[in-house]
Amino acid sequence: MSPESVDLYNTFLAILALLSLAASVGLLVYRFARGREAALSLLGDSAVWLAWLVAAVATGGSLIYSEVIHFIPCRLCWYQRIAMYPLAIVLLVGAIRREVVVRYYALPLSLGGALISIWHYLTQTFPSLEGGACDPTNPCSAKYVNVFDFVSIPFMAGAGFIVISVLLAFYVRTERE
């Protein structure tokens, strides 16, 4: 891909990430303002499909970064991939089979992934968290992407994990309901 295409791609994903975070805030406000039943009625079965869509776009997006654009994932990138890639499969199966129990399998992954993304973002913001020197092979403190001066790859991943977590935590029925 040309550098201009990469910039466009980065900007597109950054906007998606910001929209995801905005949606997360909106969904949380709606849930706590209107109550659980109203939240469950808002999206219905679509909540798991939406969560899957986010996981699928995040998975595809990260694969484009490594396999097409040839960014090399660092250690923390791999941990986030370990959390996100199974979500794309687990949520798809759960959505197709309409099994609400999928939230119990997926939430630990999305919450764990969100924590790793936050740590990775902090490492990029405060490189000293990774030590005083850069590993020449592939440091996690290096920012391959930096849209609007603050949206990096772990930011985008974190936004994905957060919106998936909000959808699964508050917009999917529990097994007992």
Binding site: P3, E4, S5
Partner: peptide, 19 residues
């Protein structure tokens, strides 16, 4: 989202510049 990805892919294929 799908349409945007297709448009991006088309732009990237059409706009290759040598570095």
């Amino acid at each position: 989202v799908g349409l945007a990805l297709i448009v991006l892919l088309a732009i990237s294929i059409a706009g290759e510049t040598e570095v």
